[in-house]
Design a protein around this nucleic acid. Sequence first.
DNA 1: AGATGATTTGAAATCGATTGCAGCGATGAC
DNA 2: GTCATCGCTGCAATCGATTTCAAATCATCT
Lengths: 329, 329
Amino acid sequence: MTVNIKDVARAAGVSISTVSRALGKGPVSAEVREQVQAAVKATGYRPNLSARRLRSQHTLTVGLIVADIRNPFFTAVSRAVEDAAYQAGMRVILCNTDEDPAREALYVRLMQEERVTGLIFAPTRATIGQLRAAPFDFPVVLIDRAGPDGQFDTVVLDNRAASAALVEHLAVQGYRRIGGLFGGTSTTGLEREAGFSAAMAAHGLAGESRFVAPNAAAAEAEAMAWLASPARPEALVLSNGLLLTGAVKAARAHGLRIPEDIGLAGFDNETWTGLVQPGLTVIEQPVETIGREAMALLFQRLKTPQAPTRKVVLSGTCLVRGSTAARAG
Amino acid sequence: MTVNIKDVARAAGVSISTVSRALGKGPVSAEVREQVQAAVKATGYRPNLSARRLRSQHTLTVGLIVADIRNPFFTAVSRAVEDAAYQAGMRVILCNTDEDPAREALYVRLMQEERVTGLIFAPTRATIGQLRAAPFDFPVVLIDRAGPDGQFDTVVLDNRAASAALVEHLAVQGYRRIGGLFGGTSTTGLEREAGFSAAMAAHGLAGESRFVAPNAAAAEAEAMAWLASPARPEALVLSNGLLLTGAVKAARAHGLRIPEDIGLAGFDNETWTGLVQPGLTVIEQPVETIGREAMALLFQRLKTPQAPTRKVVLSGTCLVRGSTAARAG
DNA sequence: AGATGATTTGAAATCGATTGCAGCGATGAC
DNA sequence: GTCATCGCTGCAATCGATTTCAAATCATCT
């Protein structure tokens, strides 16, 4: 059996409550504190967090529900969240939904059972609609994807502006027939499409938008077909890093030169986007800031539960590289 | 206040213990079970996991301590671990150490306080040495890095063979002056160096090994210097994905052509290694298998605590790509 | 009818900590 | 000398579940 606080009390010759106070912040004499610390060392005592959480009624735990940790965007965000959490003496429970609403529901229930202090969540469109009805006992911060306005604190990119910036750039570089491939399961995909369409219209360009499941394989399949069609676009905009990967693969498979045969621009500045040749023009998201800001919103909400909800809109940075070089003619 | 089992009992008109049994696997009449389920739905009850864990004395939790989740190798492994865990009704606590022994110690202590059912751990060399002395109340499975022989269940790559395969391949392709850059904080780096040196000697080749901190920036700096030296090697072997990234950056910065000016081969088949041109020759690790196998070892150990420890050695796959094309002359 | 046994149910102990409250000795004020 | 105050300590209640044990119910058999 593992050693508990009772054993420490016996070893130190004091009561249980004194041990608790000596290890916490209660008032104890210096002499007793030393005795207790010695007893802890001698017995190898480690407090039982389940017991502590049950009694004290705070779990010091934040939930983090994302689509897939293998998506470098979520990897980076979650790392930032974890750093901020551990720094504040809290721990993180991470769950991957793979964009599946059933798993989202499952993990939300898990968070309730864990009695998390707060939840950071990147839900699918399907789930966002039902969030309004759900009564949470803890604050929820949405990241990457916006929910019903005003109900939750939120950290998102300015997706419309970012998409527009890409279109703007492509237009200046002389691209005219531009296709957009967007993730269909998130509001983020929708917003990026909206920004794309609006900017295309503003420049008097005829574009086409398509939606796919947000993974590289689906994007590759769709891009393969699209790039093989007679009306192949001059450039493609991809709404996230996974889709961008698929598009590059498709272009390579068709033997198309970038940017001569097909211009490419997308979202998410992953390590490799600068290493392929030509480099890929992308919107870089402030991933660390997103994670840190989400935790900050959470803490702020815990401190002032009644304050009006806030929506932090961060802007991306357009990194121009060779994949959108000026089009000849 | 949140609703607890007492409220459900009152709502269903039965005792607390009956509610517990109705929701668990205890014997209850079909009629009562329905009443209880109705009461749960009506009250919105969610069991408190802290209380359950305290009383039942199993936490159904596995700890996972890795260097950095942003390293795609660990991302993939941890995703596999999580999938296996959640499938078995367990949850995962993930911690990043950044190869810092102090943080390793901190997180190991955390795992003890959480009373985890088991721990999956990729420790630094510094910590491995002290593991022997540490008494754990739960099984520990080492991944990626081997510890003192026989003390812990372990899942590792056959690092020596993988390194040797790379050298073999480079030798056949006509490379002779080959440099090796290895991570210095892990046994994995050491083993890969050993395999490298042995294979070089076996082929009568004169190589040079260098060690760096296992991150892209350190590798880039070292490679920058190395590639600028008069005795620039004809090819470089990199002991993981981060170092490979750094080496490619350095090569690009010097304007060196791959493979004409510098051949490159490394470990970890990340998405981009097949997208850069030329593609990079790498050892692909069976990342999903590593994660799944680690969980399997853990479960096996829990079932038969006294069984002799096992060391699962998996072999990598050498993916030959353009970065090691046959050397002219 | 009464004994037997199987099947459900409830009362109460328990997990390991935190925390409100009361006790106790020493000190200082009057 | 007495009483209030202060600083520290211990007792016991409590958090919300699981689990043991005994009681209650009911059908079945003799």
